[in-house]
Structures are given as C-alpha cells and as structure tokens.
Design a binder for these strands. Structure first.
Lengths: 207, 207
DNA sequence: TATGTCAGTGAACGCTTGTGCACGCAATTC
DNA sequence: GAATTGCGTGCACAAGCGTTCACTGACATA
C-alpha cells in the first residue's frame, strides 16, 4: 500500500520546502518571505499552504532542522575519512567551508535565525550548534584525553571561530574563500596549541 | 545664529532614529520595520519621513554607524583605564559584555545585519568589526611585539569569539551572562597562549 | 517689509498581505 | 456501490504598506 494520497501530499510538502529554499537569497531573508509567494512558486493556492503547515514559522523550523542535520552528517562523514590519516583540523574545516559554499541558502538561514526575531528559531539553531560543539568535545575527550571542562572551552571557541568564518565566506569570492579557509585552519591550530599549553599549565600547577 | 529651523529638523531626525531604535526588539527586527510605524512613533506624518531619509535603509545604516562608533569609543576608553594596571583581557571583555547588556537593541541590529539581506548593511557592519580587529592588532604589535601576520590571526580569532559570545548573551539571564563572561575570558586567554606558543614555535624553527 | 525656502501635512493611489469560508472531486473506507 | 475523508480551489475581505502630489505656514533672507 503506497497511499497515493499521502504520497501526493508529501510531494507538495516538499515543493513548499523547496520553494521556500529557492526564495532565500542574499537579498531576501526568511523574515521577508511571504506565504503567498511561496505557495505561488510551489504551484498551489495560498490557502492550500495551511494543509501542510500552520505558519510560515513552522515551515522555517523545518528548514532549520533539515539544514543542521545535513551539515552534521557531512562533518561526521568527513571525520571518518580522517581515520585513514591526515590532519583532522584541515579536513573538518575544509568540509565545513565546502558545505557553506554548496548550501549557501541553508547556511544563511541558520546564521540569520541564530540572531533572528523568533525565539523558537533562535533556540532551534542554538541546539544545532550545540550538537556540533558536543561532538567535538567528545572527540577531544576520547581521542586527545582532554579534561572535560577544558575540552568544552576549547571546542566552543573553535565552533565560534569556524561558524563566524563561515558567515564571512558567504559574501566572499572563490579566492577569498580559499584564503579564509587557510586563515581559519591556522586559527584553529592556535586555539589547539593554546588549549595544550593551558593543560600543561594546569598540570604543573597541581602536581 | 542657532538656526531655529535646522535645529528643529535635527530634532525630528533624532526622533526618527530613536523611534526606530525603540521598535527594534528580540521579536521585531529591522527587516520587519515599517516606515509608517516609525513615523507614527516619531510623531510625524509618514510622508515627512522623506525629508530626512531617502529610505528605511538609509536610516538603518545610520543606526549601524552610530552603534559601532559608540561601542568602539567605550572599548577605547576601557583600554585607557587599563593603563592603571589590571588584566587587559578581563577589562576589555567585561566592557564589551556590558555594552551588549546595556545596548541590546543596537547590538542585535549589528548582529542581524552582519548576515542580513542588504549588501550595503553587511558591508557597513563588516567595516565596524574590522575597526575592532585593527585596533586590537595595533595593540598586539605595539605593546606585545607580535609579528603583524600572527597578530592578525590572533586578533581576528579573538574578535570572532567575543562577538559570538555577545550574540549568545542577548538571550541570556544575568547569571548566564556572568558565566558567559568568565568562559569568554578563559577562551581569550587560551587564544593568547596559543598565539604565544605559535610565536615561540616560529622563532625556534627559524633560528 | 516683501520674497523665497522647506519641514510637515492629509488625501489618495495601487499593491500585497494573511486568512475565512464554502465547495469540488479524487482517493479511501466500509 | 455508497459514504466519508481531506487536499486543493476561488472568492472575498479588511488591513497595512510605500509613495505621489499639491498644499500650508513658519522661518530665513535681503
């Protein structure tokens, strides 16, 4: 039983999501997105929108969830490739920057709604970012034997720097992006070195 | 010659700016601000708006400029107080966080338009942030004899971390803000230590 | 004192917006 | 085969928007 009806419904739901994505751009943010325009691009009547979402806000939260998930999957995948050897820092940052370059609309949405005007949105994005930090903390504790508290400072700082660089990448040319990538890698290494030094300092201070 | 006329004009101009500020909040961003509402709050007819600004965009850019300027002045002032002794890192980060707490609307505007939908806005905010970084670089080169290139990496990373923490502070309670402040100070110190280690590393590698 | 300038006005315009409602019609259920 | 469900529709509405236009009247100038 495929459920012709349910299938069709899912299809127009995807059409709505896709339409919203398409309308997002550097000039046109989520806040200034209109139900009518989205419905128009999805090829349905404005009133039909309500068969799928209660609000534009509900649609937006769906976008945030899907976008965050996609980014995290990508990074996890890149971390696995690292098992083969190579710099984990370089690989992760590169993957991140590639995501930004290839999924501009989604990343822009995440960024904007991070400090946007809907508390719901802000919390959703914050949750996504915390996912990243948590995964990084786990890595630092498990693979590098970091003290958990220090690992949290460390990971949080890295995530802040990388996301911030991602934001700048949105407006940058390919060449500028390349440079931004190198700068960011260097900065992450500085932070790693600083965390290492801090760990050594704490040890000598205690023992 | 005071110029009663020019004086009055400036007064309503300030009223418009103030009205725009007042309407900015966690729920109501600049994008969803309407000319009519701003004019209403400023106590003038909608059409009179055009006597002072061509667009809402022009008003917004004014807000960005003024906000950035205020923040920079505050930080410069706090850096001077440091001459009396004390931790420059703690003082600067504290000042920054106080600004965020006391000028929520402005900081929110800066943040939102940093990745907002008007290229003009984005560039304006970016320019403000670059001012900060540049001042910090100068400090690092002059007072701490850092190599300029390393100082730029260092300063840029710090600014990214601090601004990002400021963003989180907007939604935080007083207690959370206090904790965020301490965390951020610790992170800036980690970065400073990392930069120091990197400098040592470069020296030993060269000589 | 006469003349010019210009901040502020109020009515009017053409649009777009979100949403309520009753309805058609195909897929589903019994 | 009959009854029910539910996605998509077209119409209608009130509200809000940015912007135009011709105007008034207080200030500036000479």
């Amino acid at each position: 039983m495929a459920g012709i009806r349910a299938q069709q419904k899912e299809k127009t739901r995807r059409a709505l999501i896709q339409a919203a994505m398409n309308q997002l751009s550097a000039e046109h943010g989520y806040a200034s997105l209109s139900l009518r325009e989205v419905a128009r691009e999805a090829g349905i009547a404005p009133t039909s929108f309500y068969r799928h979402f209660q609000n534009m806000e509900e649609l937006g939260l769906t976008l945030v969830d899907e976008g965050g998930l996609a980014l995290r999957q990508l990074l996890r995948q890149s971390r696995q490739q690292i098992a083969k050897g190579g710099s984990i820092i370089r690989a992760s940052v590169t993957t991140f920057m590639e995501f930004v370059a290839n999924n501009t609309a989604i990343f822009r949405l995440l960024l904007q709604e991070k400090s946007g005007n809907s508390r719901e949105f802000r919390l959703a994005v914050q949750r996504e970012v915390e996912h990243f930090t948590a995964e990084l903390v786990d890595y630092l504790v498990a693979e590098q034997q970091f003290d958990r508290q220090l690992a949290e400072l460390h990971a949080d700082a890295i995530v802040r720097v990388v996301f911030s660089a991602g934001a700048d990448a949105l407006d940058a040319s390919a060449a500028e992006r390349q440079q931004l990538l190198e700068v960011t890698i260097a900065q992450v290494r500085i932070i790693a070195r600083g965390a290492e030094a801090t760990r050594a300092l704490a040890k000598s201070g205690l023992s």
